[in-house]
């Protein structure tokens, strides 16, 4: 059962990845692109978790945690830049 579900899940998450990437390329405004980038981070976490289940290995967890943290900090920094024109005040 799992062996049929995981490829379907891979396909869905990859499609989600492509849709977010399309929004990243298309824009039209800076907040749209940042939102797309943020969604790409979360989609990457989903892909990593699926890969971890598929390969039966837990070592991808650390990568997912790091991406979650760096993604959040990146989004906040970019928003700060849009709001103030500066990241560190």
């Amino acid at each position: 059962m799992l062996s049929t579900v995981i490829p379907i899940a891979f396909a869905l998450v990859s499609l989600a990845f492509l849709l977010s990437f399309w929004r990243l390329l298309r824009g039209p405004d800076a907040p749209d692109r940042i939102l797309a980038l943020d969604t790409l981070y979360v989609n990457t976490i989903a892909l990593l978790v699926l890969l971890g289940i598929h390969l039966g290995s837990a070592i991808y967890f650390e990568a997912a945690l790091l991406i979650a943290m760096m993604g959040f900090v990146g989004t906040v920094a970019l928003c700060k830049y849009l709001l103030r024109g500066d990241i560190i005040e």
């Binding site: 869905l12 998450v13 499609l15 989600a16 990845f17 849709l19 977010s20 399309w22 929004r23 939102l35 797309a36 969604t39 979360v42 989609n43 989903a46």
Partner: peptide, 9 residues
């Protein structure tokens, strides 16, 4: 996950 990105696009 897919629907979220679908909404985004």
């Amino acid at each position: 996950t897919f629907i979220g990105s679908l909404g985004l696009a």
